[in-house]
Design a protein around this nucleic acid. Structure first.
Length: 344
DNA sequence: CCGCGGATAAACACCC
DNA sequence: AGGGTGTTTATCCGCG
């Protein structure tokens, strides 16, 4: 019933016809380092791509003040996907790959990939939380929260404007968020800055995690005892990754002729543990990187399950990265709550 | 059925 | 005055 569970979750992947240039076949550890338009691991790799001035007021001055977090949206359509959280790539939160070779097989039908923006499964509290956490100063005005949500969840671009009311409602009602008094000398605009109460941060993280698991309740992947155990332990999922270009046709399980197709299982947001970076990326740790989130999509092919992580643009097969869950990595995952607790 | 959490709508006051 | 912001209340819905 759960073919991909447990020890069977070995390494496999597929070859996509057009390989992402982000990966180096000769150096898997660097392959993950990021898509072409993304900065290479550097001292700034873990820091948000914040504008030179990180004062909160820039958010008001520029309606697109948060756009740098959505990397290289060359066209508006680049963001027409829930997966547009590419700033996470820039944070280098994806684990570096030590994945075994993955098999080749036919490219998945694009039609199976999610198309139109769907309403995110995350509560407004979670959305607000993510928005604030992604801000350079860990605080945002309401407008900045709006923009972050719109930029990262295109559903809200076209949704009736009532959701903004809900955001404000949540900010006021939820004890998780605190209103800060603005520095009037810098204040250009209305309203206050909002931040996350540190004492509620673990709870918000937990909600995010639960959303992830609940939303995946019918996934055989998440029926994996290992994953369930990790969930029970409060541990979060960790993705091990592999570059598409690292695929190995020698894998007997999924040959290039494998007549399987990828079946889109879910769209998820999963907590990803920060990883040890290469020596190129020695820098101060970004708190968010320790409890980062990323949107991805599950795909199932026979007994194996894959995660397709969008690259720096739409979910086209040229830019996706294929991730694969690694049970051992799951087991080794640290607790988001622990991570959060360690930050305050 | 009940309680709870979340979403949504609406009204109102305040501030710029 | 108008619009954005913040607060509060009410209602509905899904879930356990």
């Amino acid at each position: 019933m759960c073919p991909g569970a447990g020890s069977q979750m070995e390494s496999h992947t597929h070859t996509l016809p057009s390989l992402s240039p982000i990966h180096s076949p000769t150096n898997p550890s660097k392959a993950l380092s990021l898509s072409p338009s993304l900065p290479q691991p550097s001292a700034t790799a873990l820091s948000p791509p914040s504008p030179p001035q990180s004062t909160p007021s820039h958010l008001l001055q520029s309606p697109g003040g948060l756009k740098p977090h959505c990397l290289s949206p060359s066209t508006p359509s680049d963001q027409d996907d829930l997966t547009c959280l590419n700033w996470l790539h820039q944070r280098n939160i994806l684990p570096l790959s030590k994945m075994p070779p993955l098999p080749q097989f036919e490219s998945p039908p694009i039609s199976n990939l999610p198309s139109s923006p769907a309403k995110p499964p995350y509560s407004f509290s979670s959305l607000i939380f993510m928005a604030i956490e992604d801000s350079p100063d860990k605080r945002l005005p309401v407008r900045g929260i709006y923009e972050w949500i719109v930029n990262n969840f295109p559903y809200y671009r076209t949704a009736p404007s009532g959701w903004r009311n809900s955001v404000r409602h949540n900010l006021s009602l939820s004890k998780s968020f605190r209103r800060m008094q603005r520095d009037k000398s810098q204040s250009i605009g209305k309203g206050s800055l909002w931040c996350v109460c540190p004492e509620y941060r673990p709870g918000l993280l937990e909600v995010l995690k639960k959303t992830h698991y609940c939303h995946s309740s019918n996934s055989s992947l998440l029926n994996n005892p290992v994953l369930l155990e990790a969930a029970d332990d409060g541990r979060s999922a960790v993705c091990d990754t592999m570059a598409i270009s690292d695929l190995d046709s020698n894998n007997p399980t999924l040959s290039s002729n494998a007549p399987c197709s990828l079946i889109s299982e879910h769209e998820e947001l999963v907590a990803i543990q920060s990883v040890e970076l290469t020596d190129e990326a020695e820098s101060e740790k970004d708190p968010l990187a320790d409890s980062g989130y990323i949107e991805f999509h599950y795909y199932q092919c026979e007994q194996y399950q894959y995660l397709v992580l969008p690259g720096n643009s739409d979910l086209d097969l040229e830019t996706v990265e294929i991730l694969q869950l690694d049970a051992e990595a799951q087991e080794a995952a640290g607790s988001l709550l622990d991570l959060a607790g360690g930050n305050h």
